[in-house]
Amino acid sequence: MGDGGVQKNPGFAGITGDFNLTEAEVRGTDYVGQRPLDGGHPAVAGTMPYQVPPKAVDGPIFVGPFEERLEKVLTRYEDRRGALLPALGIAHEARGYLSPEAMEEVAERLQLAPAYVRGVATFYTMYNLRPVGRHLIQVCTNISCNLCGGEDVLQAFLQATGTGMGEVSADGQFTVIEVECLGACGFPTVVQINDRFFENVQPADAGRILEELR
């Protein structure tokens, strides 16, 4: 609510409070690092390692390690349809968003109808259906964050990037959107930027975070 008397929570918009843990320790980055492109073990190959910036790449998606990953994923489901969410995830990771062509390729790979794939892809909000900035800034404004100033944080990011909601900034770096609860309500306001959660973000932090990302 932005008044001075309120004690801030520990978290990782650069405020670690009185904790003797480093940010890396809390986030576990030292433990996992980035997942390999081929997905590692089949049990976890459906896990998107990271949301990567959009790439202007032509040609098929499911080649090389991406194809290997899809093959691994297919071993974990009873039918090809079961691999649809992971396959869309891989396509999304490879292209940064799901173009009609990407949906068609996924449909072909999984022997599904393109219209069906589109229906599924549009049901889930995390699949971008058009290109977004290199950094997709998703600000939670749901109740817990909202009570603690989420809407101000959203405005701060919109101002700092100079974009409207959902637009790509002129330099292609940023897209700011409002999202529903991100599941870290004890650390408001929560901002997800690509694969990373920024917690306890205050409106004043927006500029600094953007600098960090550039």
């Binding site: 599904l112 109808a113 219209a115 069906y116 589109r118 229906g119 549009t122 049901f123």
Partner: peptide, 10 residues
């Protein structure tokens, strides 16, 4: 059995 229609969005 020619799934050309779908529900888009939710």
């Amino acid at each position: 059995q020619d799934e050309r229609l779908g529900v888009v969005q939710r």
